[in-house]
Design a protein around this nucleic acid. Sequence first.
DNA 1: GGAATTGATACTCGCGGGGCATCACCGAAG
DNA 2: CTTCGGTGATGCCCCGCGAGTATCAATTCC
Lengths: 311, 311
Amino acid sequence: MPREYQFPFELRHLVYFREVAKQLHFRRAAEALAVAQPALSRQISQLERALGLPLFTRSSRRVELTPAGHTLAREIEPWLQALAGLPGRLQAVAEGQVGRVRVAFTGLAMATVLPPILREFHRLHPGIRVELNESPTSAQLAALQAGEVACGFFHPDAPTPSLRVHTLLKERNGVLLPADHPLAPRATLRLRELAATPFILFPRSFNPGFYDRVLAAFARAGVAPRVAEEVWPRANGVGLVRAGMGATFMAPSEARNLPPEVVFRPLQGAAPESRLVLGWRREAGTDPVLQSFLDVATRPRPGRAPAASAG
Amino acid sequence: MPREYQFPFELRHLVYFREVAKQLHFRRAAEALAVAQPALSRQISQLERALGLPLFTRSSRRVELTPAGHTLAREIEPWLQALAGLPGRLQAVAEGQVGRVRVAFTGLAMATVLPPILREFHRLHPGIRVELNESPTSAQLAALQAGEVACGFFHPDAPTPSLRVHTLLKERNGVLLPADHPLAPRATLRLRELAATPFILFPRSFNPGFYDRVLAAFARAGVAPRVAEEVWPRANGVGLVRAGMGATFMAPSEARNLPPEVVFRPLQGAAPESRLVLGWRREAGTDPVLQSFLDVATRPRPGRAPAASAG
DNA sequence: GGAATTGATACTCGCGGGGCATCACCGAAG
DNA sequence: CTTCGGTGATGCCCCGCGAGTATCAATTCC
């Protein structure tokens, strides 16, 4: 559908018109615009011809706006104001001073690394709004590919060649038990001891790789888990454990501020490992806002093991 | 203050940019704009140079928006939409289909000619908003000169050479009396019989000519009036009469729907005359909205004496 | 009536937008 | 690896049009 250039006038016409409408005097308006008066006259009459109607009534002694001229002046003024500030605003966006960055995350990220990252990022970049979006790893990978989010905190499954990732956490999972569970008094547990305990997992489709590693850990321990429920986000698993519906896996970092009805126990021997990474599209290096966010998020932070980037 | 032309780009650049941002493809965008691809490329890169920042990331296989480009696209879109419809809107304004007309009036107008005029005007021109403004004659004359109102219903004082006027009403005033006034039982009155009655007038400055004619009518009757109050708008005089504070003049047309505590009596012999005219600036013929309003307002209407225009 | 001021017009110059031809680059196909 | 198709960028030329100078016509003020 060839849509031709649809404006019979240019910005120049509108700016010239505004000045004449303001001064109601061609000579003075021309002076204010740093242009000769005949040029101004011609541009105005050209605008009038383009619109097909007069904007001013000129007697050689007085210039007045027609009703259409009044309307035009009223309509374009806010426009021109906004447009005048536009280059500066774009500059700020380009420099990453203002803007927004869409970030996906999982429950573990929110329980561990995300709050301090957000606090520091807001301190360094108060003009940038972070749009946070909790979603499972599989959805994050799709959203990253589609460009719907700029980066995501997730638990890597298979290698992702189109993404760059930065490892933030690697933790052996422990087990969350109801406080009245027979094994609750024990300081540490082995996986095989939990053969009789129903387990609460997350839906496999949300992170097939991790899900399969969990089941492999059970297999190595010689038992098959009884899956009682699948629930997401994983934080909701705490509620189910609390209700006595079974046990669930949890990273030590997540196991703080637990309600008194549940206990966390480390695992000896085979245990699923949670790896939390920050990932972003390899070719997304053009976005300064994302760069700023990555700078803060991948900066080594006290109290956690430093980690190296990898492709 | 010489304010130079402040936009380093033109409307064309924005329209071109919008199309490329929409298509993310120079060739197709150029086609849609009915322009050759090199021209489009140059305009875009020119816009980028003008803004001092890249709007697209081009690899020769893919075109993507930078954050600043996204921002620009978001900001200008509503603008361009509005601007596209602007010529049509101005056309409608110029043709008088839409717009507004500011009309001043006095109490007598609202009590007589104004309601049917407004009703018919809205029926014929539903797109035009009438802004009504009750104000005394003297203020209307000033507002007409200043162009603050397009026309006014007022009571002419001296000749007004810069205005065109159209007479709508000419009525001999009668007298409004408290119902318990000694003269209330009489069917008609003479001015001299009211010598002892306090009168409620309006401030002289609001219409010196009419005020002086009122006093002249008294003088011809051989009495000097006792002015009890001066109040405006004149409708408020009814309340004062009702409160027994005195009598006041009133046109028969205004003397409808009176409260029971007051009575209206015609005058025999000398009586002030109220003349209601519609006036507008002689050189305001350019405004089609006003023209439409004048057409309706000066059209002969059943139930009133027709009146001829005069300068 | 004459001078001054206003906006419009005539004419020329030069910038720059547009078209055409072509280049440089990249990805896909063989 | 080579070839080919398709992308956006560049070089070149033309001419449309905006801007400046000089001037005119109309109105107002003295």
